[in-house]
């Protein structure tokens, strides 16, 4: 794998997959968790109905490299800024944030401006998402 040569890693990438807010559908999140597992990542799955504070606390305790937010409720513009603030409040500022679910095209740029690195909408291939995360997950050589 070319990208693993440019990104030398000696341990699995850790990813938190979280379902913020009130939508009760996590099939997409589970499919993604499974695909990431098969790509050799360690995936912490939080389950449904997570508040921004819960997601930030889990990201901190698990010291993940990547936070993946799966949302189908349409509340992303309300919730994502609060999640990003909650992460920063706890000093979790070196994680890659990606999002998936039903996010309209018009909302993608504002989310990227907020600090989300990629939005995987419906129709994104699993391998595309895996490749993006592998390429962009932070490599930590140093200790904070």
């Amino acid at each position: 794998m070319a990208e693993s040569q440019s990104n030398p890693r000696t341990h699995p990438i850790r990813v938190l997959i979280a379902k913020p807010g009130l939508d009760g559908h996590d099939r997409g999140a589970k499919v993604m968790a499974r695909a990431l597992r098969d790509a050799g990542f360690e995936v912490v799955y939080t389950g449904l109905f997570q508040t921004p504070e819960m997601i930030a606390a889990a990201a901190l305790q698990e010291d993940v490299d990547v936070v993946g937010l799966s949302i189908l409720s349409g509340a992303h513009m309300a919730l994502f800024p609060r999640i990003i603030d909650a992460l920063r409040e706890r000093g979790v500022d070196d994680v890659l944030i990606v999002a998936g679910g039903t996010i309209p095209d018009d909302d993608v740029q504002p989310l990227l401006d907020l600090g989300v690195s990629a939005v995987f909408g419906p129709g994104t291939s699993l391998s595309e998402a895996v490749r993006f995360i592998r390429q962009h997950a932070p490599v930590r050589h140093d200790v904070p």
Binding site: R37, E42, E53, M54
Partner: peptide, 18 residues
Amino acid sequence: ISGGAVLGDRIRMSRWDR
């Protein structure tokens, strides 16, 4: 096979996250 894992035990304990 892949060395990956799905760690799902936290799901039952998320009320303690705060």
